[in-house]
């Protein structure tokens, strides 16, 4: 008997989707975005925009699945929720959470082999583009709907090892009120 989507277990999460399917779907999505922008620079913005909407839903879903419908209110535990729980649910492994060096408003999530860009080689004339912008959009969506206003952007980090490896870093820049609130919570 065929079960409808409503009858299915809500908590099941491991290995439901094949990697090829995921990669083809993402590839089509990038092509769709590419066809819908006038300049190639806008591609990242478009992917980001799509990602944000995914992020809103990811927060709801994962709070329900993993946290018994609670969500974090402290900055660091929220960030580790994003880089561990969310990353594992979305991309199959955890990301590395790093603190920005210049500003206390900045944090980074680094992923050495982002699943999204696993099969994508960016041509030379598009070299500034990182399809991880989609992941950055998701992060921004999650944090914003959890009441942590921020901006997230994806950057490619090249390491000159042999063979050269590329990793993707999502840079998160919080609005100043987030850090102020965090300090108030710490003192109380």
């Amino acid at each position: 008997m065929k079960t409808s989507i409503l009858d299915r277990q809500f908590s099941k999460s491991k290995g439901e989707v094949s990697l090829s399917l995921y990669a083809f779907l993402f590839s089509e999505m990038v092509q769709y975005c590419l066809n819908n922008v006038e300049q190639s620079q806008q591609l990242e913005d478009k992917l980001h925009e799509v990602g944000v909407r995914v992020g809103y839903r990811v927060l709801d879903l994962l709070c329900y699945r993993d946290k018994a419908n609670r969500r974090e209110v402290r900055l660091l535990s929220m960030l580790s929720f994003v880089s561990q729980t969310c990353w594992r649910a979305l991309f199959g492994h955890a990301g590395d959470l790093l603190k920005g060096q210049d500003s206390e408003l900045e944090y980074m999530i680094n992923d050495k082999s982002l699943l999204l860009t696993k099969f994508i080689s960016v041509p030379r004339d598009f070299s500034h583009i990182n399809c991880g912008a989609y992941a950055a959009g998701i992060v921004e969506g999650i944090l914003q709907s959890a009441e942590f206003p921020c901006e997230a952007s994806a950057h490619t980090v090249e390491e000159s090892t042999n063979p050269p490896t590329r990793s993707t870093t999502v840079l998160i820049r919080f609005a100043s009120e987030v850090v102020e609130r965090e300090k108030r919570l710490q003192n109380s």
Binding site: S20, A23, F24, F26, S27, E28, M29, V30, Q31, L34, F119, I120, S121, V122, P123, F126, C131, P163
Partner: peptide, 23 residues
């Protein structure tokens, strides 16, 4: 099939210029 067909920047039937495929 992995590195060319799943690459959104590749047009089908066109010359393949994919770094990951080369590697």
């Amino acid at each position: 099939t992995d590195y060319v067909l799943k690459n959104p920047f590749h047009d089908i039937d066109m010359p393949i210029r994919c770094e990951l495929f080369d590697r």
